[in-house]
C-alpha cells in the first residue's frame, strides 16, 4: 500500500506567554486503503494532530510529508489545492452551511475544483448522497435534517472531490449508537475502496473497524 502521510513534528501552544507543549518528536505514517483510529484521553492532542494533518493548522515545527510533498514548503495556493483535492475533513459538529441545501453543501467544494465540470457537479452530489442513503433528503436545509443525516451530508461533502485521505475528528461524538455504527461502516467501506481513513474517537466501538489503532499519550504514540 502507498504511504500518503509521513510526519515528524513538534507542537506547542502559546497561551498568555505560557508555552503548553502538546507533543514532541511525534513520528507517524499512514497508508492508503487502511482505517486508522487515533485514541487517547481528553486533552492529549488528538484534535491538534488531525488539524495539522488536515492542513487546518500550519503552526508546528518539524516535517510533514503529504503525498511525498513537504507541506511547509508549499505556497498558500498549493496548500488550498491540496485541501481541496487530497483531503476530506469531517467535523464532530458537522459544520454544514445553513443557507445551503444538502446537495448544495456537497457541491460547495467542487466549485473550486477545475477537474469537475460544472454540469457534472449536481449529478455527482446526488450520487454521493444516494450512496449514503440520503436520496430523499437532497433538498433539505441542515436544520431540517437529523444529526446522523447531517453527518452523512458532511461525509458526502468530504467525498465531493474524491480525495485519497479522509480525516474525521470524533465524527460520531454527537450521534447515538445506531448512527455511530452507520457512520463507521461507511468509513470502513471507503477504506476498503482504497482511501486512507483516519478517525479520532473516544469510543471503543471504533476498534472493531480500525486496521490500526494509535494511542496518543503524553505526546507519544503507542500502537
Amino acid at each position: 500500500m502507498k504511504e500518503v502521510i509521513n510526519l515528524n513534528i513538534e507542537k506547542s501552544y502559546i497561551l498568555k506567554h505560557k508555552i503548553i507543549p502538546v507533543f514532541k518528536d511525534l513520528k507517524l505514517s499512514f497508508e492508503s486503503g487502511k482505517f486508522y483510529a487515533i485514541m487517547g484521553h481528553s486533552g492529549c492532542g488528538k484534535s491538534t494532530l488531525i488539524n495539522i494533518m488536515g492542513l487546518l493548522d500550519n503552526e508546528f515545527k518539524g516535517e510533514y510529508f503529504l503525498n511525498e510533498k513537504n507541506v511547509s514548503k508549499l505556497s498558500n495556493k498549493e496548500l488550498a489545492n491540496l485541501r481541496n483535492k487530497e483531503i476530506g475533513f469531517i467535523f464532530q459538529e458537522f459544520l454544514l452551511d445553513k443557507y445551503l441545501k444538502a446537495y448544495e453543501n456537497v457541491i460547495f467544494p467542487m466549485l473550486v475544483n477545475k477537474d469537475i465540470l460544472p454540469k457534472e457537479r449536481k449529478k455527482r452530489a446526488l450520487e454521493l448522497l444516494n450512496m449514503l442513503g440520503l436520496e430523499d433528503r437532497v433538498n433539505h436545509f441542515p436544520k431540517e435534517l437529523s444529526g446522523g443525516e447531517q453527518q452523512r451530508v458532511a461525509i458526502a461533502r468530504a467525498l465531493a472531490n474524491n480525495p485519497n485521505i479522509i480525516l474525521a475528528d470524533e465524527p460520531t461524538g454527537d450521534l447515538d449508537e445506531e448512527n455511530e455504527t452507520k457512520i463507521f461502516n461507511i468509513l470502513k467501506e471507503l477504506s476498503k475502496k482504497g482511501k486512507c481513513v483516519i478517525v479520532v474517537s473516544h469510543s471503543n466501538e471504533v476498534k472493531k473497524y480500525a486496521d490500526i489503532v494509535y494511542k496518543l499519550q503524553d505526546g507519544k504514540i503507542m500502537e
Binding site: G54, L56, N76, K77, A80, N81, L82, R83, N84, K85, F89, L95, D97, F108, P109, V112, N113, R157, N161
Partner: peptide, 8 residues
Amino acid sequence: IQKAYGYS
C-alpha cells in the same frame, strides 16, 4: 470551512 475545503 471554506478554507478547510480548499478555498483560497
